[in-house]
């Protein structure tokens, strides 16, 4: 699973790179517009170690933010599954807040919380939280009639059991949503770092952009891609283990 994801990413990355080189040599563009393969290689030798640490920093913040938003989405999803006023209010609020672009909200967060870890974490969580929440509410408020009916009739149904049944029956959907939102968490963290933080790969990309250094940006993209693939594979593997364990039980 891991090696497939990695080599698929590498193929996509190098196809993109080839396309860039094609444009460069067909249009006879200088290294300032599109760097040459040698320049990318030299830049990689120079910045690889530093960027590796930056990406690890970013991914660690993204993972924490992702876990926080999964926990929060689960709690709110459980409350929101109720067909009451609270449930519908949460849904509407989630849709509305999701409509705001993070680049408009992020500066306010940075003014209030500074450009440290907390702001990056909050933005990462915010970006992946709302899609997660909407899916969780959808999944947890959808009754699994043929199973729940039995417990309802025998009056053994509790809210914990209801959540378990609905989560178990929709495990594939939940895994897909969590894996999908993981990329959003990484993107959110990078965007936050790009806008205002002073650490992480988003911050390094911003500096490279100021220096008009596309080679550095390409190296950063490569590392982001590799680490995103690793994280997604880990999540898929966790989903697979959970399903297996529940099947056994």
């Amino acid at each position: 699973m891991l090696h497939r994801r990695i080599y698929q990413f590498v193929i996509v990355y190098f196809l993109g790179l080839t396309f860039l080189f094609l444009i460069k040599y067909v249009l006879n563009l200088s290294d300032y517009v599109i760097p040459s393969p040698q320049e990318i290689w030299h830049t990689a030798c120079r910045v690889f170690a530093r960027y590796l640490l930056d990406v690890m920093d970013t991914v660690s913040v993204a993972i924490i933010g992702h876990i926080l938003s999964i926990c929060l989405a689960t709690i709110v999803g459980i409350i929101g599954r109720l067909t009451t006023w609270v449930g519908s209010f949460i849904k509407v609020a989630a849709y509305n807040i999701q409509a705001y672009p993070i680049v408009a909200v992020a500066p306010i967060i940075f003014i209030l919380l500074g450009d440290g870890l907390s702001s990056r974490l909050l933005i990462a969580a915010m970006i992946c939280y709302f899609p997660l929440l909407l899916s969780f509410i959808g999944i947890l408020s959808e009754p699994v009639g043929h199973i729940e009916h039995f417990y309802d009739v025998t009056e053994r149904m509790s809210w914990q059991l209801q959540v378990k049944i609905r989560a178990f029956e929709n495990m594939n959907k939940l895994t897909t949503v969590i894996v999908g939102s993981a990329t959003l968490a990484i993107v959110g963290t990078i965007v936050a770092e790009f806008i205002a933080a002073s650490a992480g790969i988003g911050y390094s990309i911003r500096i490279a952009l100021y220096q008009s250094d596309l080679a550095k940006i390409l190296i950063a993209l490569f590392l982001i891609g590799i680490f995103t693939s690793l994280y997604l594979t880990c999540l898929e593997w966790l989903g697979y283990l959970t399903r297996k364990r529940w099947d056994r039980n």
Binding site: S30, D31, Y32, V33, P35, E39, Q211, S212
Partner: peptide, 11 residues
């Protein structure tokens, strides 16, 4: 910007 571009062969 100009000097950086020159160092990378921009005309």
């Amino acid at each position: 910007q100009v000097i950086r571009a020159l160092s990378k062969g921009a005309p």
